[in-house]
Design a protein around this nucleic acid. Structure first.
Length: 330
DNA sequence: AACGGTCTCAACCGCGGATGG
DNA sequence: CCCATCCGCGGTTGAGACCGT
């Protein structure tokens, strides 16, 4: 048995609101507020509407200072950044965008921003200004964090050394992150932003076969919880789902880097994450590894990971190596 | 102009959490 | 502690607008 409906659907009007109804609702709320009870409001206001419908109409349309129309580049950037950090928590995202409603942002994401992301990732020759970030620039070995992100750097998820990681000049810098001593004898130090206390070591999480790199909670949650990996109703992963997964991962990491490096304007170099994206049956993938993750975080040497072993055994898996996690020369 | 496909976004739905009796 | 009620949220729907042929 399902939950009782909030009102009698046969006795209330549904569908689009008329100007008269809008006016009645606006007048009533401006005069009396909602009285802490939306359910009884329509009766008092003389509306043949469900209380929930009144609430929605007020919050999403009639409330003062609602901003309608195109989203700015800055708003795009904020949405991308927050989505990367917290996912589809639209009400929280809306709280960071004055005048925008969660419904508006949700619609905007579903109809435009998501497509923007997909198109920007599918072609390296096209840039998405909102997604552009120096941290996503595969050609950058050492970058200086700009005060404001560049709007012109093309978005690409692929590391130029993915084919032959041994040639990557930055690889050995991360052989011992917690020891901070790289093969070139330069000291590298993790930069911690005191206002971003979300880091935790992989050794603190229950991801097996990994150590060293610092992630934030959202990322670890993502790795630990297989339900966050995209799959269809049968647990299968399509190419499109893999692509979306990759984009989400990059966004999270990009946001993480952004937060970690706030306030730091010196030089830094970057590490990797190895992302083994496996198509096919999600359930088999999970049970086969004995873990809920198909991602290995651990620099360029992934031989100890059962996760990566699985990925390597699958001819159709794709290995992405994406620059991430800044470490700074002392 | 007519038609069909696609897109947009306001509105709906149902669930989970909070609250109060 | 249990239960009923309400609120707020995120996912989904569908009518109308828009666009291409």
């Amino acid at each position: 048995m399902g939950r009782a409906p909030c009102c009698d659907k046969t006795k209330v009007k549904r569908g689009p609101w008329s100007p008269e109804e809008d006016s009645k609702l606006r007048d009533y709320i401006e005069k009396y507020g909602n009285g802490g009870n939306w359910i009884s409001l329509p009766l008092k206001a003389g509306l043949r509407r469900c209380g929930k419908s009144c609430r929605l109409r007020w919050l999403n349309y009639l409330r003062p200072n609602i901003k309608h129309g195109d989203f700015s580049e800055e708003e795009d950037r904020i949405i991308f950044s927050l989505f990367a950090a917290i996912g589809s928590r639209w009400s929280i995202i809306a709280a960071h965008l004055p005048g925008r409603t969660d419904n508006d942002i949700k619609n905007y994401w579903n109809t435009k921003l998501r497509k923007k992301l997909l198109s920007s990732s599918s072609s390296s020759s096209h840039s998405s200004s909102a997604m552009a970030s120096p941290y996503l620039n595969p050609n950058s070995q050492d970058v200086k964090r700009p005060l404001t992100p560049s709007a012109t750097i093309p978005f690409s998820s692929y590391n130029p050394y993915a084919e032959n990681p041994n040639q990557d000049p930055t690889k050995y810098l991360f052989s011992n992150i917690n020891g901070f001593e790289a093969d070139d004898k330069q000291m590298v130090l993790p930069y911690s932003n005191p206002n971003y206390p979300q880091d935790l070591s992989l050794s603190d999480s229950n991801i097996s076969g990994t150590s060293g790199f610092l992630l934030n909670h959202n990322m670890c949650d993502h790795y630990n919880n297989h339900t966050s990996f995209s799959s269809d109703v049968n647990g299968k992963r399509s190419e499109t789902m893999m692509k979306q997964e990759e984009i989400m991962m990059m966004m999270m990491i990009d946001h993480h880097i952004d937060q970690r490096t706030k306030g730091y304007s010196g030089d830094f170099t970057q590490g990797y994450y190895n992302y083994y994206n496996v198509p096919g049956d999600l359930k088999q993938m999970i049970s086969g590894t004995g873990t809920n993750s198909n991602i290995n975080m651990g620099g360029s040497d992934s031989s100890s990971s059962s996760i990566s072993n699985l990925a390597e055994n699958k001819s159709s898996s794709s290995l992405l190596q994406h620059k991430c996690l800044p470490y700074f020369y002392s």
